[in-house]
């Protein structure tokens, strides 16, 4: 998997978890928690998935709920190098 796939992989994981079939509406700004796609209980699972993608543990004490707002904030928080790449592109 290349870095560019990360936003896509995260989106698919979230939409699968939320049992969403019509995916047209979803983009990097869609609100994940405020729009009811994931609850705080799903976030536990998402963090473990992110750790698996990163290959290292996430420091939970350093996290704010805002990091889980949308795909953009997730990528910025957990995959900063991807975030920089996409800004250049």
């Amino acid at each position: 998997m290349t870095n560019n796939d990360i936003p896509h992989v995260l989106s698919n994981w979230i939409l699968d978890r939320a049992n969403v079939t019509d995916r047209e509406f979803f983009d990097s700004q869609t609100k994940i928690i405020d729009d009811g796609l994931l609850t705080s209980l799903d976030v536990v699972e998402l963090i473990l998935f992110i750790e698996d993608l990163r290959g290292e543990e996430v420091d939970i004490d350093a996290l704010e709920p805002e990091s889980f707002a949308n795909i953009e904030t997730l990528v910025e928080t957990f995959f900063p190098s991807v975030s920089r790449d996409s800004q250049i592109a």
């Binding site: 976030v43 963090i47 543990e57 939970i60 996290l63 709920p65």
Partner: peptide, 10 residues
């Protein structure tokens, strides 16, 4: 082992 829980108010 740390918890991976995040409290979100409802």
């Amino acid at each position: 082992y740390p918890e991976k829980k995040l409290a979100i108010d409802r």
